[in-house]
Amino acid sequence: MSETASLLDHQSIWGPMAQQRVFRCLLEAFSYPGRIQSASLPALLATLGDSEISLADPDELVAADDWRRLGARREAADKANFVVARGDIDPAFQPAIGTLESPEQGATILLRVRKLGRGAKLKLSGPGIQDAIKLAVGGLDPAWLERRAQWNAGFPMGVDFILVDGEQFAALPRTVSIAGEA
């Protein structure tokens, strides 16, 4: 398919109607943390990103074509609004966590994991979760959960995570507390 055709195609992830649907999945994922939704990493980026945001891609997970279409500002992972990173290796950066007055400036981290729905079980609780919910995540280095707890220790400051595998994702807003389970 030529590029012009794919941009005009409403089913394409760059089309407005597809982005509306992906956003509603994002909304559901953030409203009910731990519930798995369907959308790929490029579709999430296309829905959230444009020239208004800064994006960091320390592990080079975003294709050059997607960078070009997003038009997002390239930024270091320590400063960016959005960070895309590999979940199977140690976090090698200190993301923005916002300030007491403006906690929304804390970063959103899109974390690439191997598989959602299979793997180590995390027990989640907090706003959006009735009692507790279990989320199975395959290929997530436990160091991420330790660092996340440190970054989010001073609510309202903190970072919000979107875990994403090939075609699915789940959100972990900063309010969610995580207990690991064997």
Partner: peptide, 13 residues
């Protein structure tokens, strides 16, 4: 997209 990004942060905080 501006409104949508704000909504997700509003839910997170």
């Amino acid at each position: 997209r501006e409104v949508r990004r704000a909504i997700l942060k509003a839910i997170s905080i």
